[in-house]
Amino acid sequence: MEWTIQELAARAGVTSRTLRHYDSVGLLPPSRVGENGYRYYNPAAVARLQRILLMRQLGMGLPAIAKVLADEVDTAEGLRAHITALEEERARIERRIRAVRHTLEALEAGAEPRMDVMLSGFNDRYKDEVVSRWGERAYQVSNDWWHGKTLDQQLAWKKDTDDLVAAWVAAAKAGVPPTSDRAQALAARHVRWLSAIPGTPTAEGDRERSIAMVRGLGDMYVDDPRFAGMYDDEAGAAFVRDALHAYARTHM
């Protein structure tokens, strides 16, 4: 099966002049040239044009495209690489769509859009730490889960989180021991909160890594200055840490 240059141009959404230019720079020669001077393109040439157009859409210039194609040994591997690049681009576009949708929802609800809701993911600020502790997949899955929520769902989640923190602060101020029923009930609630986040070890039922995560979070609440004041003071953060450690030790 072959297509003429006019047929290929029409199918590909480009001009015949573009295809002739690709030929002149050695990027896409026709499969053959007929006695009448017509250029013809077979399936292999069409597949090559597909690659060229994909790379053009990704912002690559013709010299760079020519180098990629010249250096390429395995066409199938090259196509797999392009699929990966396209999937990454799709993910970026979907994140932008969700961000704009959040803004629209806020405006339609008569609320002033909040920058932290519109532009921040669930754990964007802690990406490096999440990746180093629990891996790239844990970050990506949880971040996609957060960005997939509507504005109302994000605000509801933030409220639940604030309520949990407030309950910890109240228990610390009441002076109950970290191993008390009240503190351990809060620790169990904290672990359920973690388990609701896809990608985390607690959500996936990985016992050993879940224990490490719960203990690690407890330590982080005390040691990391970013959490200073989250639980009112250092004593409050230490109370949460000790309660989580005790829960991990006896209930996980």
Rank of each mutant, 00 (worst) to 15 (best):
M55T: 08
A12C: 01
G175T: 05
A167Y: 05
M1E: 10
R17H: 13
A44D: 10
M118S: 06
R51D: 04
S132W: 11
L53D: 07
D162A: 14
G199F: 02
S120N: 14
G26V: 09
A174C: 07
K127N: 09
R189E: 06
D144K: 10
L217H: 03
E129Y: 13
E89W: 11
V130N: 05
E2I: 13
S31C: 05
M220W: 04
W193Y: 12
R207A: 12
R125K: 14
H102V: 14
R51Q: 15
A172I: 00
A76D: 06
Q153N: 03
R249H: 02
L164I: 05
A106P: 07
Y247L: 02
W3D: 11
P29D: 03
E2Y: 15
A212T: 08
L86F: 06
H251D: 12
E7S: 09
T4E: 02
F122I: 12
A238Q: 11
M213Q: 15
T202K: 09
V176R: 00
I197A: 08
M213N: 02
M252W: 07
E112S: 14
S31Q: 08
D162R: 13
R95S: 00
V33W: 00
Y41N: 06
G175A: 00
R182N: 06
G218H: 05
D71P: 02
M230T: 14
R51V: 15
E7T: 06
A166P: 02
L217G: 04
Y22I: 04
S210P: 02
Q140F: 09
R20C: 05
A138E: 01
L49E: 07
A156H: 09
E136C: 02
G229A: 05
R192G: 06
G218M: 05
H245F: 05
F122M: 14
A106K: 04
F239K: 02
R226A: 12
E94Q: 15
L54C: 15
A138F: 00
M230W: 11
E72R: 11
A187P: 08
V25F: 04
E87T: 15
A246T: 15
G175E: 04
I83S: 12
E2R: 13
A183Y: 04
H21I: 14
D233G: 08
R56Y: 01
M213K: 07
H251W: 14
H190Y: 03
V240F: 08
L244Y: 08
V130S: 01
R96I: 09
V191I: 02
K159A: 14
Y247S: 05
R182F: 10
V165H: 08
M55L: 15
G216I: 01
T200C: 03
M220I: 09
Q6H: 12
A10W: 07
L86D: 01
E234H: 13
R215G: 01
A85N: 10
A70D: 14
I83Q: 13
A243Q: 00
I65H: 09
L155C: 12
L53H: 09
E89D: 11
H21S: 09
